[in-house]
Amino acid sequence: MDQSTLSPTMIEAQALSKHFDTEAGRVDLFTGIDLVVTRGESLAVIGRSGAGKSTLLSLLAGLDTPSSGSVSIDGHRIETLDDRQRADLRARKISFIFQSFHLLPELTALDNVRLPLEIRGAENPKHDARQWLDEVGLGERTDHYPSQLSGGEQQRVAIARAFATRPSLLFADEPTGNLDEETGRTIIDQLFRLNAQQGTTLILITHDSELAMRCQRRLRLHNGALTEV
């Protein structure tokens, strides 16, 4: 039985801890974090640089393994899944938007959007990719390479790539960090518009409190603890 159709919970983290062993001794990034994110919710995680926001993101996305505690995504306990099952989960349900866009430089905009569709074996990846580029206003620039696009346009390609697989969970890690204010605003508008349209659960990592205000819920990661703001 598919648990995802039953549960309103998208992510559930229990007693999540992460520490690193360094030459100088153990460094605890955070300990005992509990978090529940409901389906369709938008959540901002704010905090200073080095607070561990990105590590938390990779734990919640099942990209990293916690030192202790557990994470469930859409009812699947991450620690019980092997590499392939995790990959499958990511392919079906999760998307990312990065600060540095992370487009493959030798692929056109269209092929970049196509990549996750090909990974999940979509039926008509080229058509879907073209549609999503149209959606973000880049329908005329499908054959352009990343180096031929501005920063804002590259991030729009990344947004199209993120939504193309119709994910139920989207992680955005400082999505405007590399953009000027005005472009950043346009990008965020587009992101929230599509998010609302698709009913995607959004987890946004930022240190921009104005941007965080646009999310339904805000959490601050500080001194290893996560508190509601």
Binding site: R86, A87, R90, I119
Partner: peptide
């Protein structure tokens, strides 16, 4: 990037 987007290490 591919692994983040859903490919497995084996793939």
């Amino acid at each position: 990037l591919m692994q983040t987007l859903g490919a497995s290490g084996e793939q």
